[in-house]
Amino acid sequence: MPAPDPALLEQMFHRMSVARAIERLMLVHTRERKFSGWWHPGEGQEAAPIGATAALERDDYLWYQGRGSAWAIGKGMAAGLILGDLLGKMNGATRGKGGGVPHWADYSIGVMGEGATLGSVYPLAGGSALASRIRKDGRVSLADFGDGTSARGTFHETMVHAAAWKLPLIYFCENNGLLVGTRLGEVSPTENIADFAKGYGIPGIIVDGQDAVAVYEATREAAARARRGEGPTLIEAKVVRRHGHYAGDPQKYRADDEFDDYRDPVDVLAARLRGNSAERIAQEAEAEVKAAYEEALAAPEPDASVIERDLYHVQ
């Protein structure tokens, strides 16, 4: 698989920097201002979503889980829509319904949305993948989930069929080793999530989740395989959850030396860029996020009519 070309690398770095700037801002925002619900920080895990989404086409279907913002940003959603939504403003992606748990969707760029009952992404992605098989449209569906969510029954129900039918589906696991504070080893019989792939007769790929390029290459391969009609792939990115399960989590369950070998995905990707473009791109991203945040703060709040919006579509 070819590595991403310099222009794509820069785009990846830009999007990762935007997601990182949102992370930093949200930690402050949730501490200092009113926030509806909980923010689940994604700092440290950005290479997985940024690498994976860079490997997808614009109209491939992404079903993501709700940690951080890098999946939506990686697929091309504007920071303003995300920040507006996190602040619950009318200029956000859901037009006034937002808060802690992200439900950002833009079907036109394949951001299909998030289900906050974890494990719901599997059959949803199975559905879009089956649609692609029926329509022969060459699209790939990606279901993103955390390691703890591999225990859901829908994981199995969907993959059994996807493997049997050779659906163009990628299961993408962000394995940060933690289910809130529970270690994966206490609740899973396998060392790796990718080990489950054997049972379905599909490739199970383990990839360095701190390196966006490694993730990109693995996802590219899986997407190509899916498009060739060879069926699903399970990718497991080993990632690091840098902060608490939610912003404000005291994290008493973490060890003191846990971050001794920590490699920040932003640094890992920056080192792959040419010259000193990293610094410039990071500054641009930060300015972009700051402006979007100011705009969100100033944007209007929803009124009660939002409660009754979007329940039924009228033709």
Partner: peptide, 18 residues
């Protein structure tokens, strides 16, 4: 399909969304 009601209904949702 096999015996997989959650999958069947979830698949319906995913396919309908697209």
């Amino acid at each position: 399909c096999g015996i997989s009601e959650a999958f069947e209904a979830g698949l319906a949702a995913g396919a309908a969304i697209v």
